[in-house]
Design a protein around this nucleic acid. Structure first.
Length: 276
DNA sequence: AAGTTCCCCTGTTAGC
DNA sequence: TGCTAACAGGGGAACT
């Protein structure tokens, strides 16, 4: 659920809370949470490390500590919470880190899909193993429309599948893929090989506009999803098609339809979005 | 090689 | 009303 804007919102909030704070100790209650090491070595390494830098690539959070880069993927429902006293209900809390400011940083994840890893820190973050199959971030200037075109123009997949493919462009998930296709006037089912260079310029323009806008509004909060630290985004008020099945298109009043594209729930205005 | 399916999880929702 | 089955979804492994 958290896509680039939600992850950025979490990161920015954590940065204000955790900059130069030290991790005194830690506990992992769900070992699979750690993807590249055993729990005890992870904890041993992270102990005594302070948060120095904060970065995001795609949907990944990155914390540069004194000696390590700590990479976290929240997947669907992962959240960080800061507490001064641990809560009664620890059911979905899978990791607790005690900090030198007296607070506890808790990782909460009802579906246990999130993962984290610790690597010796590097200068070029994109070289970390976590990013092996991750392309340029959607807001990275290296992510150009021509590059996007070159990566997709021979593909027989649907456009939406390419937008969701993190190895091409990182940070777009199901919500923003629908919004980008709508803003671009393109049916998400359009085969990639039918997408022109000009279309890619349009797609990249709207991708940046929508993602930047969503970051400004603190991301999107739908259903029960709230990002870390109890943050509630407001971008859901600006969604044009996603989660608007049956409601009139804001441009042409045609009812928005919901369909499936590559097994993913997909919202389309059948009038404004043309299949090529 | 590219594209598809399965799997990991559990709360929510649809269906009977 | 109460129960069960289907569904949701990101990414990686396995498979076609």
């Amino acid at each position: 659920m958290p896509e680039a804007p939600e992850v950025q919102t979490v990161l920015s909030t954590l940065e204000t809370q955790l900059k130069d704070v030290m991790i005194i100790d830690g506990m992992i209650y769900y070992p699979s949470l750690i993807e590249n090491a055993d729990v005890s070595s992870f904890l041993q390494q992270i102990k005594g490390q302070s948060f120095r830098q904060f970065f995001r690539i795609g949907k990944y959070l990155g914390f540069t500590l004194d000696d390590y880069d700590w990479i976290v993927h929240l997947r669907m429902e992962g959240k960080f919470y800061l507490y001064t006293t641990l809560p009664q209900d620890m059911k979905h809390i899978h990791a607790v880190f005690s900090l030198n400011n007296g607070q506890y940083l808790c990782y909460h994840d009802t579906r246990k899909f999130g993962r984290m890893a610790l690597y010796p820190k590097v200068e070029e973050k994109e070289t970390l193993p976590s990013f092996k199959n991750v392309g340029w971030d959607c807001l990275d200037p290296r992510m150009t429309s021509l590059y996007f075109y070159q990566r997709i123009h021979t593909s027989h997949r649907a456009l939406k599948m390419a937008l969701l493919d993190q190895s091409i462009m990182a940070g777009i998930g199901n919500i923003y893929a629908d919004e980008i296709c709508f803003a671009s006037g393109l049916d998400p089912r359009t085969k990639c090989y039918r997408i022109s260079k000009k279309d890619c310029e349009t797609i990249l323009y709207h991708t940046r506009r929508i993602i930047q806008g969503a970051i400004t509004y603190g991301g999107t909060t739908i259903r029960s999803y709230t990002s870390s630290l109890g943050i509630t985004g407001r971008f859901q008020l600006h969604l044009k098609v996603h989660q608007r099945k049956g409601q009139p298109c804001l441009i042409c009043q045609t009812p928005i339809i919901k369909t499936q594209v590559g097994k993913r729930g997909t919202y389309i205005c059948p009038h404004c979005q043309k299949r090529k």
